[in-house]
């Protein structure tokens, strides 16, 4: 018997937990007494939940049979989670400042913060010019060429 990989066990348990939560939500989040049996707004979501449950069982069965993934899969490390959280923080910060301060103010500031502090870019030319040029180019494309609306910022509008 080949050495067991815990990948399929973890995947199977994760899929099972997700499918059970999904099926639970189907009954609490969707009105059920509409339409004929097998043809209600719940039908497809419920069926999908069952499919997912079945797939979870298959993964656990694969684990018991000693199946291993074709290519090695590294676990997610603490450091990686921390770094992803920092990146996502910048994403969210950009979205948040975009809402309050608008595109023209938030974009150069956030891109400067990202290049300087997150990506450790040392060249001042890139840190200063790159955010300004990118902001100007996107503004030109969306506002001048495409007549789209970019966020003006709640605070800026109030002022």
């Amino acid at each position: 018997m080949i050495r067991k990989s815990k990948f399929y066990l973890a995947l199977g348990l994760g899929v099972l937990a997700f499918s059970i939560t999904w099926i639970f939500l189907v009954f609490f989040q969707i009105e059920g007494n509409i339409g004929s049996p097998g043809n209600t707004p719940r039908s497809i979501p419920f069926f999908l939940g069952c499919c997912m449950f079945l797939l979870g069982v298959i993964f656990i069965y694969q684990y018991y049979l000693g199946y291993r993934p074709k290519s090695s899969i590294e676990g997610i490390k603490k450091n990686e989670i921390k770094n992803i959280a920092i990146c996502i923080f910048f994403f969210v910060l950009y979205s948040f400042t975009l809402e309050w301060f608008g595109f023209l103010i938030s974009t150069p500031v956030i891109i400067f913060l990202i290049t300087r502090f997150l990506l450790q870019e040392k060249s001042w030319k890139i840190n200063i010019l790159f955010p300004i040029l990118m902001t100007a180019s996107i503004y030109f494309i969306f506002i001048t060429l495409l007549n789209s609306a970019l966020p003006r910022g709640t605070i800026i509008e109030l002022l």
Binding site: L98, I114, I126, M134, S148
Partner: peptide, 27 residues
């Protein structure tokens, strides 16, 4: 690559917003 990624970041955020002018779409 990280300069291109920064440019793509602006485009994905702005692109998601202009679809329905919704900040929820960005999140």
């Amino acid at each position: 690559p990280h300069h291109l990624a920064c440019a793509i970041l602006i485009m994905v955020v702005v692109g998601s917003y202009v679809i329905r002018n919704s900040f929820l779409d960005i999140y």
